[in-house]
Simulated assay, not measured.
Amino acid sequence: MTDAELRQQCHTIIPGHRQPTPAETFAAMSAWCEEHGIAHDTYGDGELIEQFEQKIARLLGFEAAVFCITGTMTQVTALRLACQDRASRLVALHPTSHILRHERGNHELLDHFKALMIGDPHRPWTVDDLRAVPDALAAAQLELPMREIGGQCPRWDELDAIKHHCQQHNIHLHMDGARLWETQAAFGQPLSAVCRGFDSVYVSLYKGIGGLGGAMLAGSGQFVERAREWFRRQGGNIIHRTPYVVAAAMQFDARIAAMPHYFERTQWLYQLLQDYPVIAVNPARPQANMLHLHLPVSRERAMAIRDDIASEHGIWLFGRASHAALPDHCYIEWYVGDNLLAMPDGQVLKALDLLAARLKP
């Protein structure tokens, strides 16, 4: 049985949002389109997409925003343009940047820019890491929150210092905001304040928002128009963006409104996890509505435990486990979304009891 089949048989799913079937998704999209009189865009021209781009731009405090079919195309394009503007091809990236971890060298192989890794792999990079670079940087990318290290964020004063340094030294500061929506409650600041001082911001329309796919790039009007042209050059000019925009737009406001509740549930979960010393949590305090659970078993053992609990109890604990630095240790990710928000406390306790019991020597 595949992981997807086993997960589908479970009555309780711990991480993430509820995943509707394609039939449910398309039916909801159809009803929403009918209700709002939605027409297709044509190569990005259309009332719905243009209004949604403007909405994202205003929410983040920018002049403009443009839809892009993938975050992978979005980010390297933004950083390529930053390099063109500053006559340097050097971009500072954290060692866990999505570009380095998951994009198969596209920034190098497609000749977008040269990457320079800065910072400790287990912590957000700091303004001192930038100051230590003797070269002329064109850009620096900062991910908020940092998914690969459990959703960590820099302190607000550290974030301000990074913004100020980049402004003073003409470094284009770009945000990987794939999960930006999740930081607002932790920072206690509106999204426009979080984004202020960044030159460009990428946001995902499918991760926390739950759409079918797609991304937005926000920045100055001129920067966004240049990015739009580069998206065309790279094959991103699909004739109809309508399915992706509708899937995000029809639930966008509700998802944004729910983010503080997800964070409150994350804070509750942190308190609960104190009663399970066999499970170590990263980060030490909640900084977004996601976290990593470090387990004292190998990755292979963790996956076997997951499958056993799913088969015997109908509870799906996590999607994947990753190797940790120590032997016979691993970690898993929990995104606190609709599933954990709606789940009775007793069911969460049951899931943790089952997991902790299998982890004990």
Rank of each mutant, 00 (worst) to 15 (best):
F26L: 13
M29L: 04
S30C: 10
A31M: 14
W32L: 03
C33E: 15
Y43R: 12
Y43E: 09
D45I: 08
I49W: 05
T72K: 11
T72V: 13
Q75M: 10
R80A: 14
L90R: 06
I99N: 12
L100E: 13
E108D: 10
L109I: 14
F113P: 09
A115M: 08
D128M: 02
Q141W: 08
L142V: 11
M146L: 11
E148T: 15
I149Q: 07
I171F: 10
H172D: 04
G177D: 03
R179S: 12
L180T: 03
W181V: 13
A185N: 00
A186L: 03
G188I: 03
Q189R: 09
A193F: 13
R196P: 02
Q222Y: 14
F223S: 08
E229Y: 04
E229C: 12
N237E: 09
V245W: 01
V245N: 02
V245G: 00
A249N: 07
A254T: 06
A258C: 06
P260Y: 11
H261S: 09
W268Y: 15
L269V: 07
L273P: 06
A284G: 10
L291A: 06
P296E: 03
A310P: 02
G319H: 05
A321D: 08
H323N: 15
I332A: 09
A342L: 05
L354C: 03
L355S: 01
